[in-house]
Amino acid sequence: MSAVAETVNEAGSVHEQQYLTFMMADEEYGVDILAVQEIRGWEESTMIPNAPEYIRGVINLRGTIVPIMDLRMRFGLQQVSYSPVTVVIILKVESSHGERVMGIVVDAVSDVYTISDQSTRKPPELTEDRNSAFIKGLVNVNDKMVILLDVNELLKIPASSHVPGLANN
């Protein structure tokens, strides 16, 4: 599907992509809509021992074990308790060993925008910001800033070397 969408766009002069956006701490973030598999409500997950704090655990998604990441915690934002509108966006990316599916917990889903590459701006280089690796670009939609995220970077879990406990095995 992704291939088709991109060829069509490449035929035109402007490369456009659709983004699903969601809210988190009053900011709007966008992810490539083709990486989104589905959107679900929050449900209790099973904890993974010695996992990074932002990995909430794993859930059973129709027979597949899917890890769930709290994006607020991943970005170091203030934690909020989960509410009925708290949603989990299930993302799917191609990785070196096949497809990977992972869920991210966000405050609420917002909208779908079509965004052209040209209107995307590079984020300002902030060496202090440890989250800058996740940011693909910034874009203005209806006078609001949307932060576009790099899904591949987002779903990378650093090797568990810094994790205490069993990690040294």
Partner: peptide, 10 residues
């Protein structure tokens, strides 16, 4: 568990 996550010690 590794398919979508990574190897977990133990």
């Amino acid at each position: 568990l590794e398919q979508n996550y990574q190897k977990v010690p133990g």
